[in-house]
């Protein structure tokens, strides 16, 4: 039995790692997974680079930023043999800001909501600018939040202030009035709605579809090839288990345990089913693509690298012309172990 320490941030899309560790998929492949929950992305990244954890549930853009040397501690070539899930983010605004924007005009669809938000913010005038939070500078949350604001004619660099709050602290920040809205992963949007302090303005998948949101990443060479293969096989089986609606109740209660997310399983169940309560008035935003597990989506797609680099450039995080980033970014996404597993599994 090989012991692997895997770090994660408390989010629904850590499901595949948690299920692999807790529902027997890892042991079946000769692995003993020790899970380490971390409060924030910078801490998880540091523990990964220092070898305190062997592999991590990591934001895909953070993995790329580390590999190309944009993030402190890098460049370190990270390699991801498995994508942990597709999508799963949403933009939420405070109840007060929602009331203000709903009074401005239509609220059907992200573009209409963003346009109304733009009107509401202009009406607020030049006082204190509205503050929105993302989970980390290098994250799809940053890029989705910026895209959402632009839909409403809001300049993310000039018209609002964008700050950073780690996912588990997001709801507290909204409650304290430190932020007026945020983009965060499941289940924290739903927790804000459930507490009556926030309203989901848009699902992430309606702003940018088909994002390989989180990767299972490790520094290149850290895991022996045989260990990587076993891990990918275990995660692939766990992913199919997570994707099966028949296991929804079990998965929700597993993730809900205090040592993992510590969230009411009923809330987790709704986000796993892609039926999110957007407002306490009963409005539901439903899309099966909201957060997806199972099938080929777990194959790391090197095509995501160019997309991430372009989004980083749009956000002013890197010079668009820096071609030196292309190759190390692409190398993060390693589909070979997935393909090898698929080959073995073929009848």
């Amino acid at each position: 039995m090989t012991e692997l320490r895997i770090g994660y941030v408390p989010l629904t899309d850590a499901a595949v790692v948690i299920a692999a560790a807790e529902r027997g998929f890892a042991t079946r492949h000769g692995l003993s997974l020790v899970l380490e929950r971390e409060p924030s992305w910078a801490t998880l990244r540091d523990k990964l680079l220092l070898g305190i954890v062997d592999a991590a549930h990591l934001l895909a853009p953070l993995a790329v930023a580390t590999a190309v040397g944009l993030s402190p501690g890098g460049p370190v070539p990270l390699v991801a043999p498995f994508c942990l899930g597709l999508n799963g983010n949403a933009v939420t605004v405070s109840a007060a800001l929602w009331a203000a924007l709903a009074a401005e005009g239509p609220i059907d669809g992200p573009a209409a909501v963003a346009t109304s938000l733009g009107r509401a913010l202009r009406r607020r005038g030049a006082g204190r600018p509205a503050t929105f939070a993302t989970v980390f500078p290098f994250s799809f949350h940053t890029y989705q939040l910026r895209a959402f604001l632009r839909l409403g004619g809001i300049d993310p660099d000039r018209d609002v202030r964008i700050t950073v709050v780690p996912p588990p602290y997001m709801v507290d920040a909204l409650r304290a009035g430190a932020v007026d809205g945020f983009c965060v992963g499941s289940p924290w949007n739903s927790v804000a709605v459930e507490s009556g302090i926030g309203r989901i303005a848009s699902l992430g998948c309606h702003l940018m579809p088909d994002l390989q949101e989180k990767l299972l990443a490790a520094p290149r060479g850290r895991l022996a090839p045989s260990v990587t293969d076993a891990l990918v096989a275990a995660l692939a089986e766990a992913a199919e288990w997570c994707a099966d609606p028949a296991n929804g109740a079990d998965l929700a209660s597993l993730l809900g345990e205090a040592r993992h997310l510590g969230i009411d399983p009923a809330i987790l169940r709704r986000t796993l089913d892609g039926r999110l309560l957007a407002d306490r008035d009963g409005t539901v935003l439903a899309d099966p693509a909201y957060l997806r597990f199972g099938g080929d989506l777990h194959r790391p797609d090197p095509g995501q690298a160019a997309r991430i680099l372009a989004l980083m450039a749009e956000a002013g995080q890197r010079a668009p012309a820096d071609v030196a980033h292309a190759e190390p970014a692409r190398a993060v996404f390693d589909p070979a172990p997935w393909a090898a597993r698929a080959g073995c599994a073929a009848p």
């Binding site: 801490t43 989970v135 700050t163």
Partner: peptide
């Protein structure tokens, strides 16, 4: 190390 402000700090840089 576990401060939630660390991620903000990196944004500020």
């Amino acid at each position: 190390l576990d401060s939630p402000s660390r991620d903000l700090l990196e944004q500020l840089f």
